[in-house]
Structure formats: C-alpha cells, structure tokens
C-alpha cells in the first residue's frame, strides 16, 4: 500500500510536467498558432509564465517531498522540535515571488501597451473599417476606396454585415462600437479580445500576415441571440482588398438600370 501511495503522488507531478512540456507542440492551449505577430508575443508571454510556474511547482514539490521523507525517516523516540520560524527564510520566500511578479508586471508592459494604448500603436496603422456590434450581428462600415475612415458616416461609405475584409501584411485598425448593449470583439486566432462599450468608440488594431479567413465572435453574453453573433474576418492582399471595396461600391451604387455595368450583381 505504501508503494501505491508513493507512486500515485509521484505520478501527478509527472503528468503535470509532461502536460506543460507537450502542450505547446500539441496545441492544447490555443486554437492553433497565433495569426498575428502581436498574438505571437502574447503567446510567448503565456509560455514564459507557464515555464516560471512549472519551475516553481516542481521546486516546491521537491522541497515538500524532501521534508516529508526526512521526517518519516526519524526514529519514534526523537522528540519533536518546535520552531518559531526563521526570519531569514520568511524574507526570502516573500521577496523571491514578489520579484517574479514584478518582473512579469514590467516584462509584459510592452505588449500590453502596444495592444491597448493608443500612443504605442504601430506608427503606420490605418483605420480600415468601423465595426458596430448589434444584437445579434456585426455591422461593418468601410470608407470609399482611397478615402480615410471618418468618425461620422459619409455619403460614400460602404456597408456590409458579418464580413470584415482587411488587407494583409500591415497593421490595420478598426473602430469598435456597439449599437445597443455590451458586446466583445473576439478573434481567437488573432488573440484579440476587446469589449464594445455603449457610447465609446474603441480602436482595436491587429496585423494579419497571411491570407485567410478568421473567426470573429462575440465574447460577452449579450442576450438570447449571443450565439448567433459569428462573423468572418477575411484577410487578403492589398490589391484584392481594394478590389473588394470597389466591387462593393459598384454593388452599393446599383441603380438597376439594364445598361449598367454593375447591373443587379448584388442580388
């Protein structure tokens, strides 16, 4: 029985450590590799914390095991020894974790700042669209091709729903708003999550190097149709993105007259 318990308690740390080591390569933590450079850095932060926590976990377990086994090895007639604690040890195990936490707090600041603080956004970031969350869909407003995105609606703006197209290879910014209650703009592959708060226009930036379709969902329980709020982020090269906007412009200006080039293509 003794061996059983020993083995059991040895087994758990082994499983835990193996899981920590294997997880990144097996993609257990995240839905695939981060699709944006900043997402990659967020993942790196996660893994760094993971490594530190693993080391601390293993260390404390070893220390605990050492104390237990050493205590068990003592003979029965040894008298118990009472200690009022060691000031030195107390100081050490207060300062060391404090130091680690401080290190983490400062180390992640760069990433946090770049992600959330306007002054630290990439210099060349450009607003491509305004995304308005609404029960229960994402309404998207683009400026006309070649125009900047304005805070207010413009007569030549282009509108879509649940389909956000962005150019690849450069940082892009969307202005996030909500038309009703609180929603959250969440793209798991891009590691972007930002609440949409009534009355605020919140800039959210990201960069997608590779062409592809990425998920956009709502991550804030916003009502009975919350599950319906799924949309697509389609990243495509600059030229195609522009072409997409131009096509959208043609469709949106469709006047249904038969001789027209963009005749009823939106139907």
């Amino acid at each position: 029985m003794k061996t059983f318990w020993c083995l059991l308690f040895v087994l758990w740390p082994i499983i835990a450590i193996t899981a920590c080591v294997v997880a990144p390569s097996m993609n257990w933590w995240f839905p695939g590799e981060a699709a944006s450079p900043l997402g990659q850095r967020i993942d790196d932060l996660f893994y760094l914390i993971n490594v530190i926590v693993t080391l601390v976990f293993v260390g404390t377990q070893i220390a605990l095991g050492y104390v237990l086994f050493k205590g068990a090895a003592k003979r029965d007639d040894d008298k118990a020894w009472f200690s009022h604690g060691s000031h030195k040890l107390e100081v050490i195990w207060t300062i060391v974790p404090g130091g680690i936490l401080l290190f983490l707090a400062f180390y992640q600041m760069d990433v946090w700042g770049e992600f959330r603080i306007k002054g630290h956004f990439p210099k060349d970031v450009e607003a491509v669209a305004e995304v308005t969350a609404r029960q229960f869909e994402w309404r998207i407003r683009y400026p006309a091709p070649g125009r900047p995105l304005m805070q207010d609606r413009q007569p030549d703006d282009l509108y879509t729903v649940n389909d956000l197209h962005v150019p690849t290879g450069r940082p892009v910014l969307i202005n996030l708003r909500t038309a009703d209650v609180q929603h959250a703009f969440f793209s798991p592959e891009l590691r972007v999550k930002q609440d949409a708060v009534p009355g605020l226009i919140i800039p959210v930036w990201f960069e997608i190097p590779k062409r592809g379709e990425y998920t956009l969902t709502c991550a804030e329980l916003c009502g009975w149709g919350h599950y319906k709020m799924k949309a697509r982020i389609a990243a495509e090269p600059e030229a195609e993105f522009r072409q997409y906007l131009e096509q959208l412009q043609i469709e949106q200006n469709d006047d249904g007259f038969p001789d027209d080039a963009g005749e009823d293509e939106g139907d």
């Binding site: 029960q135 319906k228 939106g266």
Partner: peptide, 22 residues
C-alpha cells in the same frame, strides 16, 4: 426566391432580423 435569399443573407438593418451570411 432571390429577394428572400437576400433578406436571409443580409438581415434587415434596424430590426432583429440578423444576417445569416455565413
């Protein structure tokens, strides 16, 4: 049919009819 499909795909802005584009 096209009109119905269009409404289902795009939803009706300003109402609760959502878009089923995906």
């Amino acid at each position: 049919r096209d009109d119905l499909g269009r409404i289902i795909r795009n939803g009706i802005p300003g109402t609760y009819m959502p878009s089923f584009m995906l």
